[in-house]
């Protein structure tokens, strides 16, 4: 780099640019927070949905699945699984309940988590609520 471009000029670009970027990011975050309620429909977060998120986390579901495209890529996307299974909470519950303890020979299989009825209802409600988030029309199709 040329000698006319001094180290203190470089430092000022770093400090100025860094501070500007973080301030802009904070401003955008404030704006995003104001807009989120109409997109995430938080008014529909019932105690069952909250329990469902806890069940989701306690069993590390994100370790295999994606949820809104984030997570592991070993098992299907679940952000829209409620609609994929025909807007049917029972189908979600049956899917989770029916996993064989010893797995399926040669195939990937979800573990048997032995969830209670209340936990099953929670996870189904959580996935239903998630499917109603405004995600800018993602995923591209029902397969997720």
């Amino acid at each position: 780099m040329s000698d006319r471009f001094t180290k203190s000029m470089a430092r000022n670009i770093y400090l100025g640019g860094g501070v500007f970027a973080f301030l802009l990011f904070l401003g955008l975050t404030v704006d995003t927070m104001e807009r989120l309620p109409e997109r995430d429909h938080r008014e529909n977060i019932t105690p069952a949905v909250a329990l469902g998120k806890k069940v989701w986390e306690d069993n590390n579901c994100i370790g295999c699945h994606t949820l809104l495209g984030e997570g592991a890529y070993f098992a299907p996307e679940l952000g829209n699984v409620y609609t994929r299974l025909g807007n049917d909470k029972e189908a979600i519950k049956i899917m989770i309940q029916s996993r064989p303890v010893e797995g399926v020979p040669g195939r990937r299989s979800m573990p048997q988590f032995n969830l209670s009825d209340e936990e099953l209802e929670g996870i189904a409600e959580f996935l239903k609520w998630t499917s109603e988030i405004n995600t800018n029309n993602w995923p591209p199709n029902i397969q997720g």
Partner: peptide, 14 residues
């Protein structure tokens, strides 16, 4: 898919 299942399921390995 069933390698080390159910002892070390994929989510644990990951």
């Amino acid at each position: 898919g069933d390698f080390l299942f159910p002892e070390i399921p994929f989510n644990v390995a990951r």
